[in-house]
Amino acid sequence: MIIKQLSVFLENKSGRLNEVSGLLAEAGINMSAFSIADTSDFGILRVIVSDPERALAILREKQFSASLTEVVCLICPNEPGALARALDILSNEGIQIEYMYAFSIEKSANIIIRPANVQKCINALNMHQMELMKASDLYKL
């Protein structure tokens, strides 16, 4: 249930994101979801890729500061109120969220969550019968 997300430090310079996506493309690595957190000086690219370990090795070889971060992917029905219900559960269970982002596929809305404590988050969601995407399924998207 634990997903390995690739995180990359990027300076606010034009062309840096292209370089990352170009390197991944060359290696035949697919990206299925991403978000960018930005500050005035730098950004952090957070991306779900088809082969996190290999992507990490490629970027490090090219001198990028990159790491793998454990996240979970919650599958919600693609309908009004689904996110609110999921968040209620996490809030009631005392799960802290560092950040999250989402992408949808047809009938499902998928939320990538970086909780402060990954295992605690998975346990809480399981307890409430919430559906989590398997890492192997997500990487294949």
Binding site: S7, F9, F42, I44, S67, R114
Partner: peptide, 12 residues
């Protein structure tokens, strides 16, 4: 550096 890179803005 890699060893202190965090993907959380607040850490950086």
């Amino acid at each position: 550096q890699e060893q202190f890179f965090s993907d959380e803005i607040k850490e950086l």
